[in-house]
Design a protein around this nucleic acid. Structure first.
Lengths: 145, 145
DNA sequence: CGATGTTACTATCATTTCGATAGGAAGTCA
DNA sequence: TGACTTCCTATCGAAATGATAGTAACATCG
């Protein structure tokens, strides 16, 4: 899709999709959030073609969600680590996962636990102002200008 | 990307991406959440090619996020309305929008207001169990089996 | 020293998908 | 009858994807 128009749009959702608007990018961010950093780790985890992985990693790096870091001079080796923007994307993924669990949760599933309590995480989106679940109260859109 | 493998995966995020893993689908869901229902409304709002729109609407319908509903017999006219699963996807979009606002928020932006209070919504993802913001506490992954 | 292994890619190329444009089907309205 | 509306489908060139093979720059083992 033509991302140029989208990024010009006033809509912050469209803006977000401009950087991370495809499944591979989101899965790379998921894996990066779980601690993967290296090309081959991503490739094996995702079963992605190396051509595509190269492109996605480059885009995510350009967009400022990943950072390329040299971890060995000889031989020259780089790894990809999340930036703050990249780490901040995790809630989107977690919520997407919650949706997937609810509506596509047949069979066995990976679960996400609170590392301290060991209890399963139950992600919900709320409005920090009212405390209400997103979707519980009607939303009004204010277009600029 | 090959969605077959993904949907077999244990990961609920991957499962979610199998149904709604591209930008157009998410934007259609965004527009549907804002009340759009008709083919031409989506087409004009998104500037999407009709071929693509047809396919995306069909997929979202098959996946159970939209429902095709006849609103006129003569002439035969259908509209697309959100199912419960489709409505439940809104939090993901809202959170993606919050990310976009934070990291791609230059210039004017559409804002989302609480329809009752008129105040701008500040979406956050929290764990309903601990109440902590997602990302604030470390997460552990439990793979099935 | 040579062979093999590791890591991070690039090159190639067939297949798939996208997207712009035109047009059709089934009506309504004047 | 002719314009107009709405919801698409057909066509086709352009772009993206993905499978496979290969390369660069080393390390390590025998």
């Amino acid at each position: 899709m033509n991302m140029k128009n989208l990024s010009d749009a006033f809509c912050p959702i469209a803006r977000g999709l401009t950087c991370v608007g495809d499944a591979w990018s989101m899965l790379i961010l998921r894996d990066a959030s779980l601690g993967l950093t290296r090309f081959d780790e991503f490739r094996k985890s995702l079963g992605i073609a190396p051509t595509i992985l190269t492109r996605r990693l480059a885009t995510l790096t350009e967009e400022g969600l990943l950072e390329k870091r040299r971890y060995s001079e000889r031989p020259p080796r780089d790894e990809y680590v999340l930036t703050t923007a990249g780490r901040d994307f995790l809630p989107v993924l977690v919520l997407l996962g919650a949706w997937g669990r609810k509506y596509r949760g047949e069979g066995r599933l990976t679960r996400y636990l609170d590392a301290e309590t060991g209890e399963e995480i139950e992600p919900v989106a709320v409005d920090a102002v009212t405390g209400a679940k997103i979707g519980a109260r009607p939303i009004r859109v204010a277009t600029p200008e």
